[in-house]
Amino acid sequence: MEAEYRQPEDIITDYLDYLCAPLVGVVPFEQRTRLREETLFHLEELVEAYQRDGHAPMEAARHAVYQYGESHEVGQLFLETWFAHQPQGKMARILGLANLRTLIPFGIATLFATALVQMRVFMPNPEPMTFGLSMAQIRQVLPEPLPLPDASPLSVLLALTMLIAPWIAGFYTGAMVPVRPARAVYSIMTLLIIYTFVLGVLLLPTHEGLIVGIIQVFYWLPIGCLSAQTAAIVTWRRRCRFMLVSEPRFRLVALRR
């Protein structure tokens, strides 16, 4: 690591690149530039102070960067502060911007799934899908007393929605909420699960609403959190690659010798 840096300015410039790279595409250019310029001034002052204390220039630069803090921690803190102070609408002020952005995809998915359940309950006996086979042919594959598969268009659509929705909603959330997206998914999904269970109780004696609620607890919630967190990390790394830094954090430990 040491060999990569020939002069103190190299360490400072590299550190600034690592600090600002994850902010690209999230924090406006003007504010990123301001942070970079303020950090540059601060680091140069620190380097001078360490040099006055008798350190060699390279050593002073290493100490300055260490004193300033891990680039990803400072960057993340800046991102969190910036995100918390975004201009917000009335709904965002009530819910929080991260929760509002999470509610949109997960709320739409939940409303769609529960609408399909209600259609199945209140519009019974929809035409089943036969996949081009006659009933006799299906019965050859699934003889009595095996039940016929419930393969109506509504059922297929509901099954696909239940399967795919948490992945898509989670990835959307992770891309849109740069700060602790999994926590936002957890908060919003808790409310949506309560809604689904209330609806499920109202739909009794059919159990479909309650089954959807159970699937949300054991499948949507963990998968939603996981995919949101993954998407946030992927987005973070993509921003870093865009800024030509190889990894999201400046290797401070390697400098501290």
Binding site: L35, H42, G69, V74, F78, T81
Partner: peptide, 16 residues
């Protein structure tokens, strides 16, 4: 403290 943690605080106070 790590000096870098000061700037998010300064920017937040300015926003407020």
């Amino acid at each position: 403290f790590k000096h870098g943690t000061l700037y998010p605080v300064l920017h937040a106070l300015e926003n407020e």
